[in-house]
Amino acid sequence: MADSFDFRSMLMDPSIPFEQIPFEGIVFGDFDSRKEGWFLTAREAPTPSEQEVIENVPFRQGNFDFSEYNGDRFFKQREIKYTLMYFGENGNYSDRKSIEQEIKRQLMPQTITELYDTHDTIYHWKGKVKSIEVEDDEKYGTLTATVVFDCYPFAIRNHDEFDDLWDEVYFPHWIFMDKRYEINGKTTVTYHNIGSRMVEVTLKVVSGSVSYGGMTINSGSSKFISVPKGKHDIEFDGNGVIELSAVREEMI
């Protein structure tokens, strides 16, 4: 099933000796740590801090916590740190310096983009590099790079051909929160938001004409519906086929 990970561009050059291929790594933009010869030795992804809104009132025990809205808690950016090691082939300092410059050149200028990690094969993060620190070990001819990413607090569920296969074999069909419904007159649709937070669900009318919230949506048009996490009943009217889809976000 390894070939199914092609979407992450993690395939290695077969000319490289098997024992020298790193099996754990990250992909960020065009940078693939495994292809660059960096070995992932540690990762840290602590949960993010909450964006707290707390008010204290005189002569009242405790406080008022306004940090929640519609059943959701809100979080600050998440810091994810990776430790990568590079084992030099000839112990040449100038070669190691070139490798150090290259990892900085490839990662630091990147704008906010997707971060893939072999540890979380069905999710990805989104962010940018906050800092890169590289230590040179002259004795052993190695480099240790500490790369810190500033990321969106929730992991985002991948959805591609591999996920479709995985979905059919291992999980219920609604795992990706994408589903079609037939609307005949007044119809109640039960929608499962199985993620960790409220999502913006795309309501697309595939055929016919459907009304939602007093608004008529014709075939080929779409609108967004905010749906809290959990199971919810959504009322529609009209005749046609609709598609509800959303990106699943998880606190992992």
Rank of each mutant, 00 (worst) to 15 (best):
N158R: 06
Y116K: 03
E50A: 05
Y82T: 03
F74D: 02
Q101P: 00
E114L: 07
H119M: 07
E68Y: 13
A42R: 14
G141M: 07
T111A: 11
R73N: 11
N158T: 03
E68P: 00
D164W: 02
Y82W: 07
S67A: 06
I122Y: 05
G62I: 00
I99E: 04
T146C: 04
I80S: 14
P58L: 00
F31T: 06
I54R: 09
A42I: 06
S33I: 04
E89T: 15
R78C: 08
E133F: 02
T113M: 12
E102R: 08
R73Y: 10
F23S: 11
P58Q: 00
D120I: 06
Y86F: 15
N63Q: 09
E89W: 13
R34P: 05
F31A: 09
L40S: 02
I156G: 08
G62N: 01
K35R: 10
E52A: 14
H119N: 08
W166N: 01
I156A: 09
Q77D: 15
K35N: 09
E102T: 04
Q61I: 00
R43L: 09
D150P: 07
R34L: 03
P58H: 00
E161R: 02
L143W: 10
G88Y: 10
A45I: 09
Q110G: 04
A42W: 09
I112W: 09
W166S: 02
F87H: 15
E89H: 13
F39D: 03
S94Y: 14
G127L: 10
W38L: 02
R157E: 14
D72Q: 02
S98G: 05
G37C: 04
N63S: 14
S49D: 13
E55H: 06
W125I: 05
Q106Y: 06
L115Q: 08
M85N: 15
D150R: 13
E138I: 09
L143K: 11
R60G: 00
D120P: 00
I103E: 02
S67L: 05
G71V: 05
M108E: 10
H124C: 12
G88N: 12
D72I: 01
K35Q: 11
K128S: 14
P22Q: 15
V57Q: 00
F28T: 12
G29R: 07
T113H: 08
L40V: 02
T144H: 10
S94D: 14
G71M: 05
I103Q: 01
D164F: 03
T142P: 10
T113F: 02
T146Q: 13
E24I: 00
P22D: 15
P46N: 14
I99R: 07
F74C: 01
G37D: 08
T121G: 03
T142Y: 09
F59I: 00
T83N: 09
F74A: 01
K81F: 04
R78W: 11
H124R: 05
A45N: 13
E133M: 06
K97T: 08
E89I: 13
P48K: 08
L165W: 12
F75P: 04
F64Q: 06
E68R: 14
K35P: 00
V53Y: 09
V27C: 15
T113W: 03
G91W: 15
K128Y: 15
H119R: 06
H119A: 12
R43G: 07
A45Q: 13
Y86C: 12
Y123N: 07
Y86Q: 11
K76Y: 10
